[in-house]
Amino acid sequence: MKINRAARAEAKSLFRICRTEKGLDEERLRKVIGIITKQRPRGYLQVLGRLGQLVRLEVARATHELVSATKLDDGGKAIFGVLEKHFGKPLEQRAEVRPEVLGGLRIRVGSDVWDATIRGRLEALARSA
């Protein structure tokens, strides 16, 4: 869907309304979406599309993701605690088990990745060869 400039600006202002100092206010966001779908202003589909995109990016930015080869004993609680202390409260915490990483941990916070997996190191070794 092509989103025009006016819809982008409208979606951005609505997104700003839904943001507080602590982060995204889910309740307020639901209210805003409810009002838009009820009133159906001009180009509302584009506005909603862009708003959805901005929310998705905000969630991705404030998501702490942990990837390990096997299930962690505490489900990664200790590491998530350290991450929360360092980066603030996340909107989502995700602990994934991917046996293909072989060992070690891979931590993602927004678009920043710290890769300490054996697979990552092997790939680095292959690149340097």
Partner: peptide, 8 residues
């Protein structure tokens, strides 16, 4: 072998 931060 140290862990480095990467932007993805």
């Amino acid at each position: 072998s140290e862990v480095t931060k990467k932007h993805t």
